[in-house]
Simulated scan of single mutants.
Amino acid sequence: MTTKPTAFIFDLNGTMVDDMEFHGKAWSSIINDDLKAGLTYEEVKKQMYGKNSELLHRIFGDKRFTPEEEDKLSLEKEHRYQAAYRSSLSLIDGLDGFLEKAKAAGISMAIGSAAIPFNINFVLDGLAIGHYFKAVVSADDVQVSKPHPETFLKAAELLGSAPENCVVFEDAPKGVEAAQNAGMKCVVLTTMHGQEDFSSYTNVIAFISTYNDPALNQLF
């Protein structure tokens, strides 16, 4: 990067905690076991972006469920995910030190996630890392989720940083697309997708598997 960033915006699931397989299994249970959609696990994974209600709309259409039914299904999915993942809850390697380094460097940080607050708090409170973040933008805070840029633009606004001075940390192609739509550079965590899945995006500055990667030194 030619100029150093003033803000970091983190997606949460798959980016700060390596939990996407747990989300996938919880969604597969809801979609296939409960709702009998008959999707393969790979087909379920491809739909795992944006708000929970948006995922349900993509698979079942806009008219299948009432808003109340969507909320109930969403919460049930998160209960299943949390029950399965709780004993494994941990930060991706090196993230604790990276957060401390960013804080010491005066870089403002935010969460920009399509998760509902129930899940964001599960991670932030469970790992006692909420104090690092000046802002949290959840599914409840935006009209349209990723790949629309609203999540990241709102986080940047709350941090008081221009989009071009923000670096987003993401693990999903639609999240990288949202960052690109927001005019932000992106670091990709390869927790669930290989580099080939991001070939159409021009805003990726690094691919990493952990936060110990020396490629992150360019950010400071």
Results as ranks from 00 to 15, higher is better:
182 A>Q: 03
207 F>R: 05
208 I>W: 07
114 A>M: 09
47 Q>M: 14
91 L>H: 04
215 A>M: 09
151 T>K: 04
92 I>D: 02
214 P>D: 15
212 N>D: 14
68 E>F: 00
187 V>H: 01
131 H>E: 15
205 I>C: 13
172 A>P: 03
68 E>P: 02
74 S>E: 08
88 S>R: 13
58 R>P: 14
104 A>P: 02
176 V>K: 00
216 L>M: 11
159 L>P: 01
124 L>A: 08
68 E>V: 10
176 V>A: 13
41 Y>L: 15
187 V>Y: 02
165 N>L: 08
179 A>T: 07
101 K>F: 09
115 A>E: 09
26 A>F: 02
94 G>Y: 07
162 A>N: 14
21 E>I: 06
210 T>K: 05
113 S>D: 10
195 Q>P: 10
191 T>A: 07
26 A>Q: 12
101 K>T: 15
207 F>D: 05
98 F>I: 05
64 R>I: 14
69 E>C: 10
196 E>H: 10
165 N>R: 12
41 Y>K: 09
20 M>I: 13
39 L>C: 08
215 A>R: 11
217 N>L: 06
155 A>N: 04
153 L>A: 03
135 A>E: 11
81 Y>E: 05
163 P>T: 10
94 G>H: 01
18 D>S: 07
151 T>P: 00
180 Q>E: 15
12 L>K: 01
187 V>N: 00
170 E>P: 06
102 A>I: 13
78 E>F: 01
122 F>E: 02
75 L>M: 12
73 L>W: 03
120 I>W: 00
152 F>H: 09
60 F>R: 11
214 P>W: 08
125 D>Y: 03
101 K>S: 14
202 T>W: 03
143 Q>K: 13
197 D>C: 12
152 F>N: 00
125 D>K: 11
87 S>R: 09
141 D>N: 14
185 K>L: 15
109 M>Y: 08
213 D>W: 03
80 R>A: 13
119 N>C: 13
214 P>C: 12
150 E>I: 06
201 Y>P: 02
102 A>E: 03
34 D>H: 10
207 F>H: 09
81 Y>I: 08
61 G>K: 02
76 E>V: 06
2 T>H: 09
169 F>C: 08
197 D>V: 06
65 F>T: 13
124 L>T: 11
175 G>D: 05
116 I>W: 02
150 E>D: 12
177 E>P: 00
12 L>G: 01
189 L>I: 14
140 D>G: 06
35 L>C: 11
162 A>V: 11
44 V>D: 01
108 S>M: 09
56 L>H: 04
140 D>R: 06
